Amino acid sequence: MQHIILTHTEIEHKTKRIAYQIYETFANDSELVIAGISNSGFTFAQKIAKQLETISDIKIIICEVNINKQKPSEPITTSLNSDEYANKNLVLVDDVLNSGATLIYAIKHFLNVPLNKFKTAVLIDRNHKKYPVKADFKGLSLSTSLQEHVQVVFEENNSYVYLS
């Protein structure tokens, strides 16, 4: 059984709010890398980047982070070379923060390169962390049981988040 947690409109509002929070954090900067964890995290990163481009004059650079979510310790690749984000501001984006494994391994990847400021953003924070990682920007904090599964569906005009 699916239980809708966020509708398309609610996702749009949360994306816009996160974009404004990011803008407030980086308002004095001219460039910002938005790095999204592949698939839904990258889609969410693109949505945030699009909002940022409408509300600010910060140059947005989008980056896709490829990580094996079943084996996050395997090598991580990005759509940008490390010199393209070195010494810049970066926001790492994922759709759902569950145990924190994906996010912490992705953070570890970016720690090998000097960055000016480094923040994290998620649409849903499930509060089941096994790792000491937090989201600086989050759309919704959700207390769920470990048996429940949060799924984010991004479609052109019908995005939604459900719990099953």
Results as ranks from 00 to 15, higher is better:
72 P>M: 08
127 N>S: 05
3 H>T: 12
23 Y>S: 09
51 Q>D: 12
129 K>P: 00
8 H>R: 00
10 E>V: 08
90 L>A: 10
98 N>R: 06
87 N>F: 11
24 E>D: 14
134 K>D: 15
115 L>H: 01
29 D>N: 09
63 C>V: 08
55 I>H: 07
75 P>N: 09
146 L>T: 07
115 L>C: 00
144 T>I: 14
28 N>K: 10
138 K>G: 04
18 I>C: 07
58 I>E: 04
45 A>W: 06
81 N>D: 14
82 S>G: 01
164 S>N: 10
73 S>W: 14
78 T>K: 03
20 Y>N: 08
127 N>W: 02
17 R>L: 10
83 D>P: 00
56 S>E: 12
126 R>E: 04
99 S>Y: 08
127 N>M: 04
73 S>V: 01
112 N>W: 05
65 V>Q: 00
7 T>Y: 05
4 I>H: 00
127 N>I: 05
153 V>M: 07
86 A>G: 12
15 T>I: 11
103 L>N: 03
106 A>R: 00
41 G>N: 07
7 T>K: 07
145 S>K: 09
6 L>Q: 10
61 I>A: 09
108 K>G: 07
21 Q>K: 12
56 S>Y: 10
111 L>S: 14
82 S>D: 03
90 L>N: 04
14 K>F: 07
112 N>I: 08
107 I>C: 09
73 S>T: 14
94 D>Y: 10
121 A>Y: 06
83 D>H: 15
24 E>R: 13
61 I>Q: 05
83 D>Y: 07
71 K>G: 04
9 T>W: 04
107 I>E: 12
11 I>G: 02
40 S>Y: 11
97 L>T: 14
129 K>Q: 14
100 G>P: 04
101 A>K: 10
121 A>K: 02
135 A>Y: 07
43 T>W: 15
128 H>K: 06
12 E>L: 08
75 P>V: 14
123 L>V: 08
154 F>K: 05
144 T>V: 06
4 I>G: 00
143 S>I: 14
25 T>D: 00
17 R>D: 09
140 L>T: 13
18 I>L: 01
134 K>C: 02
1 M>A: 11
81 N>T: 08
87 N>Y: 08
132 P>Q: 02
157 N>H: 15
14 K>A: 10
100 G>L: 06
68 N>S: 15
124 I>M: 02
16 K>V: 07
79 S>G: 01
135 A>N: 13
42 F>Y: 13
75 P>Y: 10
85 Y>L: 08
58 I>S: 02
15 T>N: 08
16 K>D: 15
137 F>N: 03
126 R>L: 13
64 E>F: 02
104 I>Q: 13
82 S>I: 04
52 L>F: 01
55 I>K: 13
114 P>E: 13
163 L>N: 06
76 I>L: 04
105 Y>C: 00
152 V>R: 15
102 T>E: 01
90 L>V: 10
95 D>A: 12
115 L>I: 11
118 F>E: 09
128 H>Q: 09
130 K>Y: 06
